[in-house]
Amino acid sequence: MNKPQVYPIAMRLVHWLMAALILSLLFVGLSMVSSLGPWQYTLLQWHKIAGVVALFAVLLRVALRLSSRTPALPNAIPKWQQAIAKLTHLAFYALLLLMPLSGYLMQNAAGRPLSVFGVSLPSIIATDLAWYGAFRELHAWLSIALILLIILHISAALYHGLIRRDGVLRSMIKH
């Protein structure tokens, strides 16, 4: 079966929109936990709504990934690098699911109501301090893992685009 040279347009579009959304979520998240600024409250509200949107976006992303034919990495790339590429992509999907879920559950455990675009969201777990601690810490540690993964991902993409010039970066940006 022939593999395409580039990712389908739907996947490229979702990839870049999610990249913008997730980078915004990470920067807002990192800033709002220390700031006493007047915009802190507004950003916190935005962070919660954007987090729920990101959860639906990643579900869409998984569905697209499973139903699309995606380009293979060039044969010239060593097997161990191909394996790492697969692993990082899997790790991305896992983290992108766990980030909004841990955020949601920490709000539940803190007994805080959540609503998005005027829709009240159900509480899945009971109010509990230790569980709040667990999900609050998980949310923080997962965000650090996600940031490290993003740095690795961008490094690899630029390595392919700038150094090897092998079409791997182009497969996600070609229009």
């Binding site: 301090l129 230790a130 709040y132 601690g133 667990a134 609050r136 810490e137």
Partner: peptide, 8 residues
């Protein structure tokens, strides 16, 4: 956050 972590 701090006290929840400690209780956890």
């Amino acid at each position: 956050r701090r006290r929840a972590r400690e209780v956890l």
